[in-house]
Simulated assay, not measured.
Amino acid sequence: MMEPLHSMDNNQTSPSNSARSKRWNDIFYKLRTNKSAVIGGGLILFFIFVTIFGPLFTPYSPNTQDMVNKLQPPSSEHWLGTDNFGRDIFSRLIHGTGLTLIVGFSSVALGATVGVFLGIISGYYGKRTDSIIMRTMDVLLAFPGILLALAIVSVLGGSLVNVIIAVAISSIPIFARIVRSSTLSVKKLEYIDAMRALGASDRRIIFKHIFPNVTSPLIVQATLSIATAILSASGLSFLGLGAQPPTPEWGAMLSDGRNFLYNAPHVALFPGIAIVIVVLAFNILGDGLRDVFDPKTKD
């Protein structure tokens, strides 16, 4: 009796794996031909390249002060000028790129991990488990993301690590609700019932058959959430609750430059432009991914 069941299991999963592989090949093809995805992805790759190799070519240390040359406008010596402590803004922007991306990726990775786990458990088991998890998520969603992050950082204290934790917590409900909705749809499919009939454990069904089928909306949301996380982290640093001096974080640099908008606008201008570009890049990529993963998209 066991051999036919085992054979049936192989026949059930092989077509599924083949179809999944074909689907991902189609997705990669659409990505290459989607202008938004290419532009957004190219900008993000550029920022990653700057993060890795940029600090090797910066002309000055990001924290070296030169009070004699403070608030200097852009010149051949200081390409983007200097701040109120005479520090080279270009060097600080380059070194701050890595911090910005780390905060964005880390907070979303942490929030998505917890949110995906809660969403799958909630959608798969349902009943009381679903009620408890979803009501908790509803409480968190009742607060605007930046306000919730602000409250958490106020309790934990101002630091870059605490900002990552705060932004991650504020993003958990979004991922939980998206994954729960997808899980509810997938678990009703016939092949999930077939897996149960063949004696597959809940763990196997969740990780091998349900999770791979909920990744599409998850990838899109993660990309858009990184942009939101960068904005939130920059906002907290702007308020003095994030990165602490002399860390070259873009939000903190923007905060330092707000007092010199009239006599030295470049101090705040360039960090602001950098934040806009990186957030725009993730939003453009997210829009491209949404078009690619949308089943209604025409080839």
Rank of each mutant, 00 (worst) to 15 (best):
S159W: 10
I174N: 09
D66R: 01
G126W: 00
S76D: 09
F207H: 10
Y60S: 01
K187P: 00
F49R: 06
V116N: 08
F53R: 07
F260M: 09
I192A: 01
S75G: 11
A222D: 08
V139W: 06
A268H: 12
P246N: 04
V163H: 00
V116Y: 01
Y60M: 06
I52G: 00
L93P: 03
R87H: 08
I133Q: 14
L254N: 11
L254S: 14
D88S: 05
I206K: 10
G40N: 13
P55G: 07
A274M: 14
S255Q: 11
I226F: 04
V114G: 11
G286P: 02
I164H: 07
G86Y: 04
L148N: 03
L285H: 08
T297L: 12
A200T: 01
D9T: 11
G119I: 04
P144M: 03
K22D: 11
N69K: 07
Q65M: 11
G240D: 11
A268P: 03
G98Q: 11
K208W: 14
D83C: 10
T100K: 06
S255E: 05
Y191A: 13
I178D: 00
G81N: 04
H6K: 11
P59K: 12
N34K: 08
V155G: 06
D202V: 03
A19W: 13
G235R: 15
S234E: 12
I169C: 08
R180Y: 02
A227C: 12
L231N: 08
G272Y: 10
V186F: 02
T64Y: 03
D193N: 08
V267M: 09
D256N: 13
F117C: 04
G115D: 07
A194T: 08
G111K: 15
G42M: 05
S237I: 09
V167K: 10
M1D: 03
D9A: 12
N162M: 07
V163D: 02
S122A: 09
S216W: 00
S36P: 00
I205W: 11
R177G: 06
N84P: 02
P295Q: 13
A194K: 13
S225D: 15
R92N: 04
A19G: 14
Q65V: 09
P217Y: 15
N213W: 05
G115R: 01
V139Q: 07
L150G: 07
G126V: 02
E77R: 14
I146D: 02
G54Y: 11
L80F: 15
I132Q: 10
N84R: 13
V68S: 05
L141G: 02
S7D: 10
A243C: 05
I210H: 00
F105S: 03
K30H: 06
N263C: 12
I230Y: 15
V116I: 15
G98S: 09
S75T: 09
S75D: 10
R177T: 07
K70A: 14
S14M: 14
T129E: 07
Q12L: 11
L160G: 04
S171W: 12
A149L: 15
F207C: 13
T183I: 05
R196Y: 01
T113W: 14
T64F: 08
G98V: 02
G98N: 04
M134A: 03
L5R: 14
R258A: 07
V108K: 01
G42N: 10
N17W: 14
S76C: 02
S36R: 13
S154G: 15
S106G: 03
T97V: 09
A142Q: 13
V155C: 05
D193W: 01
F238S: 13
G123C: 10
S122D: 12
P245K: 07
T183P: 06
I133L: 06
H78N: 13
